[in-house]
Computed example of a mutant assay.
Amino acid sequence: MTRKSKPGSSSSPKPTSRKTSWPFFTILLIVVAPVLVATLVYQLDSFEPAHLPIHELTQPPLKASKKNDHMLQGSEILGRGQLKGAEDIAYDRKSGIIYTTCEDGWIKRVTVNDSVSDSVIENWVNTGGRPLGLVLGHNNEVFVADAYKGLLKISGEGEVELLTDEADGIKFKLTDGVDIADDGTIYFTDASYTYHLHEFIWDILEGKPHGRLLSYNPTTKETEALARDLYFPNGIAVSPDQDFVAFCETPMRSCRRYYIQGEKKGHLEKFIDHLPGMPDNIHYDGHGHYYIALASETTAFWELAFKYPFLRKLIGIFTKYVGEVHAAKCSGVFVVDLDGKPAEHYYDPGLALLSSGVKIGNHIYCGSIVYPYIIRVDIEKHPARAAA
């Protein structure tokens, strides 16, 4: 006879307590899985940045004897909302008109007035591409480096003519800066023959010299590659004595010069090293100084990225799968003399990606690839002062 246990009896079976390990595996999955995925993506991604000549990037940045480190204070806004991405600026002193290249393809003309509110803005010519650098010619024409089209000539009547879009059988992919010599020769840069403008960050991250310095002879219509294997050559300026052309290499934080006359003709050498930021356009002011726009100051982020290719690969992967990295800050204009010696530095923590600085009268007019206006600073009222 089976003996039945009474409820509550000590012989009643007790429920078995069982500890689950799911929380541990969940935490492990949350922590380890992303690492494994990231590692796999890193290994499989074909983008392989190269080592940069880091010895050229490890020196302390240059410092100017005078500075205005809050140039936004007292600055004025010209053409708010009408000059989106006004990348470069050229000034016609005879007519008192600024020509500027905008993101929407328009080259716009802006009158220079005592008051920015009195300035008149006109849509002049649309290139159908993305105009970047521009320079006024000797016969009422304008020469434009269009990132997507190539080197263009625009007549005084607004007719657009393609002058050249390749050299040595290699098409330009990012026609960037342009200037003209007294003899009519046009000097310009192709920042990259590998990446287009909308891909420019990949050229910077890859760390390979895809750029060229070029010339165009309007008489013979010949295009010549003067220097190759350059690191994102950007803005360009012919020296006042017509001996050389100076051009910026953005990731190298430097400017080089290529001699076009004299005993050093054909020779390439450094003009300015260790700039306190990444240079974009360079302009001669007609009075013994070059004005170099610095898109961003030298930051710890970029110093590490330029030093270590694997970090640039990580940035590239982040850019590809997540979104753009915004690391530009404290932009400005660096002023040097004819020998490349620092004179003044105008900048502000609130500025990013200035692309040009042109001195007109008592003002510096600053273009940008991101702002929908031109910034104007009266350097007589807000000068650079001796650094403490």
Rank of each mutant, 00 (worst) to 15 (best):
H326T: 06
S356V: 05
N113P: 10
A167S: 13
E344K: 15
V358A: 11
F244D: 04
K270Y: 06
S65E: 15
P60L: 00
I27L: 13
R80T: 05
Y91V: 06
P209T: 01
G169S: 05
V358P: 15
K153T: 02
D273S: 14
D273H: 01
P34Y: 05
Y373H: 14
H70Y: 09
P342E: 13
Q82C: 10
G74L: 04
V325W: 13
L230F: 07
S115K: 07
A237W: 06
A145E: 05
Y284F: 12
A300V: 10
E199I: 03
Y148M: 11
I282C: 05
N113K: 11
P7A: 00
F47R: 14
I374A: 08
V120I: 09
P218Q: 02
K208W: 02
P276R: 00
T164A: 13
D190C: 10
K313T: 03
R109L: 11
H274Q: 15
V142W: 12
L205R: 03
V135W: 06
L36K: 03
I30R: 12
L268F: 10
G357I: 02
D104E: 04
V112K: 01
G81A: 11
H289Y: 10
K221T: 08
G81S: 14
S155I: 07
K67D: 11
G158V: 06
L214H: 05
P53K: 01
L62Q: 10
Q73Y: 14
F301E: 11
G158S: 10
T127R: 12
H287F: 09
T298C: 03
G8C: 08
P279H: 00
G150R: 08
K381S: 12
D69I: 08
V160M: 02
I27A: 12
T58G: 10
A90I: 04
L78I: 13
P60H: 01
L152T: 00
S119C: 08
V335Y: 07
D273V: 03
V31F: 04
S239G: 04
W22G: 05
I121C: 02
F244M: 03
D285Q: 13
P233F: 00
A300I: 05
D176V: 04
K270A: 13
